[in-house]
């Protein structure tokens, strides 16, 4: 009886998955096989495999890679530092709070900060350098994206580091390992799952960023997300938009497989969102 009850209670979950995960994916695949007039075609896929979209895919991956890399470089030491602090939960909250603010608002704020008359250029001028064009550069794009994604990277890494048993580090030191060796051979392997979860939480959304590409990079950076938005909203070619989405979903699955944990049962703690 108990077992049955458990199965029954899973029904809402399965219904949810069916309607909000499986059905939309099937719909996207279906639409990707339609042309403008609703006839079946594989031309959308052929179109995707042309140089324009392949180039776009490459550049999307490149920027997503950069964003993930810089997020990781900043987040790992930051998370490590926070675990050593006295009020670590408070510090963590301070890092997480900005992620509650709407992404668009934060992006708009950066338009002002990076502008020719913004605080950064005011500082640049004060130290006697000529005005710098910051907005609409690769730097601005990566900077803002990293800023936005950092909480999603810090959280899982923090959790992994926080769970790390300090006795293991002591043991390593007692057995004569240097600080660097301890870090390399003990801390990193034990927090790898946190890093993987963080990479997933950053790399995948970074692949499909779209508003920031226009607002901060002025469309000088074109990602797959931008292309999907345009196909749906301006061209109204749902078929092509869906085709790009199919590839995006495929890429996401591949990344999940690559960064996924081998062993099941290890808590996938703090996977943001």
């Amino acid at each position: 009886m108990r077992r049955k009850g458990n199965l029954l209670s899973l029904i809402p979950y399965y219904i949810w998955i069916l309607f909000f995960v499986i059905a939309p994916i099937l719909l996207i695949v279906y639409y990707s096989l339609l042309d403008l007039h609703g006839h079946f075609t594989i031309n959308n896929y052929r179109n995707f495999l042309t140089s324009v979209y392949l180039k776009m895919t490459l550049s999307s991956f490149w920027y997503a890679f950069l964003i993930t890399l810089f997020s990781l470089i900043i987040s790992y030491p930051a998370a490590y530092l926070i675990t050593k602090l006295k009020y670590k939960q408070l510090w963590l909250i301070l890092i997480i709070i900005p992620s509650w603010i709407n992404l668009l608002l934060k992006t708009y704020a950066f338009i002002g900060i990076f502008g020719n008359k913004g605080p950064i250029n005011a500082f640049v001028k004060a130290i006697g350098l000529p005005n710098q064009q910051i907005l609409f550069t690769d730097f601005a794009f990566v900077f803002v994206s990293v800023y936005i994604f950092i909480p999603f990277m810090i959280l899982p890494i923090f959790n992994a580091l926080d769970k790390l048993n300090p006795a293991l580090i002591d043991a390593s030191r007692d057995l004569g390992a240097s600080k660097i060796t301890t870090f390399r051979r003990v801390i990193i392997p034990l927090t790898m799952n946190g890093v993987k979860a963080g990479v997933q939480a950053v790399f995948i959304p970074a692949l499909s960023l779209f508003m920031i590409t226009r607002l901060i990079a002025g469309n000088r950076v074109i990602t797959l997300g931008t292309a999907i938005e345009e196909q749906f909203l301006t061209t109204q070619n749902w078929g092509m938009g869906s085709t790009i989405s199919v590839f995006l979903i495929l890429f996401m699955f591949i990344i999940m497989l690559l960064t996924g944990e081998r062993k099941k049962g290890v808590a996938r703690n703090g996977k943001a969102k």
């Binding site: 338009i111 502008g115 020719n116 008359k117 609409f136």
Partner: peptide, 18 residues
Amino acid sequence: NVKAVIGDEVTQLMINGD
């Protein structure tokens, strides 16, 4: 020559002399 390709945000940039 292109600095950016944007939407309505251009209004504020032009007004500010950006």
